[in-house]
């Protein structure tokens, strides 16, 4: 492990991947906190895990199949009602490309 487990630039990169924007102050604070946490979890490297299989799923069953039948839950209106902005029964979102900044 490098001397510095995570740099500020890496924290900013990770935030971008997670669709979060950080203020300057937050970026500094998270860098030092994540640095400390990653140093702590890096202690796992003391343990030899050669030939150990990873556990990523705790369920005791494998795939369970059901009949492929469509069900109408009649919840469309209730679901649409929860959306912050709607129009004519559709969820409304802003433009994917910001037209106001078009050259």
């Amino acid at each position: 492990m490098a001397e510095e487990p995570i740099s500020r630039a890496e924290v900013e990169h990770v935030a971008e991947l997670a669709k979060l924007s950080l203020t300057d102050e937050q970026a500094s604070k998270f860098t030092s906190q994540l640095d400390e946490i990653i140093t702590m979890i890096d202690g796992l490297n003391e343990v030899n895990t050669d030939d150990v299989k990873p556990t990523t799923n705790m369920a005791d069953a494998t795939a369970i199949l059901r009949e492929d039948v469509a069900v109408n839950a009649h919840q469309k209106d209730a679901l649409i009602n929860e959306a912050p902005e709607t129009e004519d029964g559709f969820i409304k979102v802003p433009a994917i490309i910001d037209e106001s900044e078009d050259a």
Binding site: L79, E82, P84, E85, I91, P94, A95, I96, D98, S100
Partner: peptide
């Protein structure tokens, strides 16, 4: 998009 809080000041989808 579908429920909960939505920022009032976004110019495009990414924002």
């Amino acid at each position: 998009i579908r429920y909960g809080y939505r920022t009032p000041n976004a110019k495009n989808l990414e924002e």
